[in-house]
Design a protein around this nucleic acid. Structure first.
Lengths: 109, 109
DNA sequence: TCCATAAATTAGTATTGACTAATGCATTAG
DNA sequence: CTAATGCATTAGTCAATACTAATTTATGGA
């Protein structure tokens, strides 16, 4: 409602476990084809394509065509809305409580 | 994949715009009642209570009873699974997390 | 006590969305 | 050329869920 569209899209897209798993595999791989994503998943190729379409529309992945293959890669700016949201409400969080800092310490620069 | 259940719960709970708006209002307020949350929202009191129940089950909010009123507040550890997930899969954004950490240090060294 | 208020819960409804199977569309190999 | 491959898209189904209206529970005030 009050929130902007991007955070809506990112949150909704990453909420589904299967689709999030696809995104995680794309992130871990430099580039990965739909076929590779389909192997090692328990859903059909069509479902993978549908998830990739959602991820692409949310700005989380990008594609590169090469003949019959389509290589997907993570889109750097895609997680920006989520980071911004975390930053915003994380700050409020931090101001009221004192626990988030220890969590952030585990993140290596 | 890291701890699947908590991140699932947090993501799915925050994915709904209405529920996320409720959470954001709870975060911004030190404490806030269901009545206050209902006012300023375009859904019924019952819907608000349902969303608060979801947020509570996801560990994102906690409640305090006082007579007929129930005051809700944000739960410090609630966003931890999201922070953990970002640290693992938001590899492109570690620098920004570092910036966030620096900002938090300035607020409370 | 009786009534009003605050919140939770229930039942029922409608919408969303994740999935499969099948098909369509390019592209490459033989 | 034809066949096969890789991916996208469609139609249809089923389950999840967000919502309202109504009710329930509990507390406070007159």
């Amino acid at each position: 409602m009050i929130e902007a569209a991007p955070i809506n899209a990112v949150m909704r897209t990453l909420a589904d476990p299967t689709r999030r798993a696809v995104f995680e595999r794309v992130v871990k791989s430099e580039e990965i084809t739909v076929l590779e994503l389909t192997r090692g998943s328990d859903v059909t190729q069509g479902a993978i394509s549908q998830h990739l379409k959602s991820l692409k529309q949310a700005g989380l992945v990008a594609e590169r065509r090469e003949g019959r293959n389509v290589f997907y890669r993570a889109e750097p700016k895609g997680l920006a809305p989520l980071v911004d949201w975390m930053s915003h409400y994380g700050v409020f969080w931090r101001q009221r409580f004192t626990n988030l800092r220890s969590l952030l310490k585990e993140i290596d620069p």
